[in-house]
Computed example of a mutant assay.
Amino acid sequence: MRTKNTVGRYGEDLAARYLSTHGFAVLERNWRCELGEIDIVARDGGTLVVCEVKTRRGLGYGSPLESITYRKLTTLRKLAGRWLQTHEVKPSGIRIDIISVVFDHNTPPTVDHVRGVA
Results as ranks from 00 to 15, higher is better:
2 R>E: 15
3 T>P: 02
4 K>D: 13
5 N>R: 08
5 N>I: 03
6 T>L: 12
9 R>N: 08
10 Y>G: 07
11 G>E: 09
11 G>F: 05
11 G>K: 07
12 E>M: 03
14 L>Q: 04
16 A>M: 06
16 A>K: 10
19 L>K: 04
20 S>Q: 15
20 S>G: 09
24 F>H: 05
25 A>M: 07
28 E>G: 06
29 R>T: 12
29 R>H: 05
29 R>M: 14
30 N>W: 06
33 C>K: 09
33 C>D: 14
37 E>H: 03
37 E>L: 06
38 I>Q: 13
40 I>V: 14
42 A>P: 03
43 R>L: 15
44 D>S: 15
45 G>P: 00
45 G>I: 03
46 G>H: 07
46 G>I: 10
48 L>P: 01
48 L>E: 00
49 V>D: 02
50 V>K: 02
52 E>C: 03
53 V>C: 04
53 V>Q: 04
54 K>V: 00
57 R>T: 05
58 G>E: 12
58 G>N: 09
59 L>N: 03
59 L>P: 01
61 Y>W: 06
64 P>W: 07
64 P>L: 12
65 L>V: 07
66 E>D: 15
69 T>S: 15
70 Y>R: 13
71 R>S: 11
71 R>C: 04
76 L>I: 07
77 R>E: 11
78 K>M: 15
78 K>E: 15
80 A>V: 08
81 G>K: 11
82 R>G: 02
82 R>E: 15
86 T>F: 05
90 K>E: 15
90 K>I: 11
94 I>R: 11
95 R>T: 02
97 D>A: 03
98 I>P: 02
101 V>H: 08
103 F>M: 11
103 F>G: 04
104 D>I: 06
104 D>Q: 05
104 D>P: 12
105 H>Q: 13
107 T>E: 13
108 P>N: 09
113 H>P: 06
114 V>P: 00
114 V>G: 01
114 V>W: 03
116 G>N: 15
117 V>D: 00
